[in-house]
Each structure stands twice: as structure tokens, then as C-alpha cells.
Simulated scan of single mutants.
Amino acid sequence: MQRRQFIHHAAGLGLGAAALGTGSLVRAAQAPLKIGFIYSGPVADVGWTYQHDLGRKMVEAEFGPKVKTVFVENVPEGPDAERVIRQLADDGCTMIFTTSFGFMDPTIRVAADYPDVAFEHCSGYKTAANVGIYQTRFYEGAYLVGMLAGKRTKSNTLGYVAPFPIPEVIRNLNAFVLGARAVNPKASARVVWINSWYDPPKERDAALALMNQGADVMYQNTDSPAIVQLAQSKGLWAIGQDSDMARFGPNAQLSANTLNWGVYYVHKVRQRLAGQWKPEDTKWGMKEGIVKLAALGPSVPKEVLPQFEDRRGAIVAGKFHPFAGPIAEQGGKPRIASGQVLPEADLWQMKWYVDGIVGKQP
């Protein structure tokens, strides 16, 4: 278990609020709103946790001395997470963001004991009177980078390094394959599951195994730049994930599917400061600016650009949905008819593969 440290920022004084939107506004004179963040990975220079921490810094920049933020990194998604979340509440945090799926049940348990604390949980589905949830339509970006991969591949075999077989990961994988096959019907994807969000050696080994099976474009739902680095060394191509990884593979990276969590964090902290916070089920995407693609790399085929940009504009405008039919599940069985869109409830509980994915689902 890695050593964890609290890191404190923005310790200035100001006027803060510490009441739920459904209750009375309680003001602490000259005391900032103390906000805690709990991270599953390291605050390094790239990846999922890095992007969340950029969001925390956006909160500091937006509200200055009205807030004080703290965070804990490298928290395992297990029983110990409850202790860390509880410690944040005991230390005076009256708003807490828990930023990974595995923190869901610990968040719910702790929230029951701290009714005056506003909790926000990322990627989960359980709410409470003082627990809101938020996740992104990350699949929108996954579909678009799939288009780049489908046009770039020479072998028609794409590789996907995946962490855990939960709906959000399967959703991104499916969208990636749908995007690839929209421009190249011959494209297929092979998947390796590593049961970790962040493990550079495992990520590299999985990508190497996929390359040995013929994959020449790599995508991932994991956090480190190891796969982009490997693609660069092999003269192949890759898609960055969570944050822009171009500096690790300037020739390899076609683009990156990134997240700007700050737009959401600023929104919810503003509610809290105004005494208007309430638990919500929020799902934002490219339209709201939380899902963003990195600049296209030099290896992106120019012939795909008109269709790519047209589809990107349609997604932002709400005129195209990546899971619009016709879509078949693995093996060719029709799943979504032409003119239909996968129902919202099914989208967030996705547990099936689309056609074009090779191998059995875990």
C-alpha cells in the first residue's frame, strides 16, 4: 500500500457556506468552505487522477479564499476508503468529492453519519439525501477516436487495454468499436483486461500482447502513458486516455479522449457556496465541455477529417448519438434497430459487446 499524504492548498481566509441546499444556510465568519477530494491513483503528470486534480485547482482559481481544498491520493477501492473519507469529514470538510467507482459504497456509508456534509461520487449509481453522483458521456469521445483508429489501421485489428468489466468501461469500448467500423467495416478489436486502473507494467504487457496479435492501433481505459510510449517505440499508433499523452508519443498519438472535470466542480461548489446544493444525477458530455479531444496528431489520415468533424459537430449539437441503430451485438444479433437509440437506462448498465469485438466478455 502506498503512503498517503494530505496535501493542503488555498489556505487563505474568506466567506464560505456549509449548508445543504435543502436546509438553512449556515455561515462561518471568515472561514473558507473546506472541500476534500479522494483519488484512487497518483497525482502525477497524466491520467485520470491528474485530470481530477486539475479540476480541484480550477475550483481554487475560481473561488480563491472562499475555499480551501485538500486531497488524498492512492486510496485503494476497498474497505480502507471508508476510513479516509470519514477522516476528511472529521477534519472539517463539508463538501467531499470521491472520484472513482469503487468509492461508491464507502461514500454512502460515511454520508449516513454526516448529514450536513455534501458528498459527490463519480461514476456510481447510488444516491442519498446528501450524496449526488456524476459521470461523463465519455463514450462520445471514444466513438470519435474510434473513427481515427478505424481509418488509421492497416491490419484492421485494434487493441484495447481495459481495467475492470464495469458498464462505463464496456460502454467506452463499444463506442470505440462503433466509431471505427463507421469508417472501416472490416475493423475489429481485441481486448485485454488487467484488473487495475493504473499499473504501467501491466498496461505495457497487455498492449504488447495485443500488438503480437496484430493490433496496430491501441486504445485504453487505463491511466498511464505506458501504452502510448510503447506505440511510439514500435512505430505504431495509439489513443491517449483521460489526459493528453502526446508528449509521450508525438508520432504515435492520433488524439486523446480527455476530461475537464473542473467545469463540473466549479458548478457544484458555486451551488454549495450559495446554499443551493442538492444531490443530482449528472451526466455531462461534449456539449457541456467536460469531454474534450486533444489536438489531432500528425499521423491522422486526412481523408477521415471531413466525416470526423461532421460527426463531432453533430454530437455536440445533439443531432447524433453514438449508440443510434442499427447496432448488432457480438455475433451479429440485432440489438438496436435503425432509427432507434439505446435507452438511457440500458446505456448506463451496459454489459454486452457490440459486433466487431473479438473474444469472450469476462
Rank of each mutant, 00 (worst) to 15 (best):
R4K: 10
F6Q: 06
H9C: 07
V26P: 00
F37L: 09
I38C: 05
G47L: 07
R56N: 06
G64W: 08
G64R: 09
G64M: 10
T69A: 04
P76A: 07
D80N: 05
M95C: 10
I96V: 10
T98E: 07
M104D: 12
D105Q: 15
T107F: 06
R109F: 11
A111V: 06
D113I: 02
F119A: 06
Y125S: 13
I133Q: 05
Q135D: 12
A142V: 00
M147Q: 06
S155L: 12
V161Q: 00
V169M: 02
R181V: 09
A182V: 00
R190Q: 15
V192K: 14
Y198C: 09
R204L: 12
D205A: 14
L210R: 11
L210Y: 13
G214I: 00
M218D: 10
Q220Y: 03
D223K: 05
S224R: 01
S224V: 03
S224W: 09
V228D: 00
Q229A: 14
Q232I: 08
S233K: 15
K234Q: 15
I239T: 00
A246K: 11
Y264T: 00
V266G: 06
Q276R: 10
M286G: 05
A294F: 08
S299N: 15
R311S: 11
I315A: 04
A317P: 01
G318D: 11
H321N: 13
F323Y: 12
A324C: 09
Q330T: 01
W348T: 10
K351C: 06
G356M: 10
P362F: 11
P362V: 08
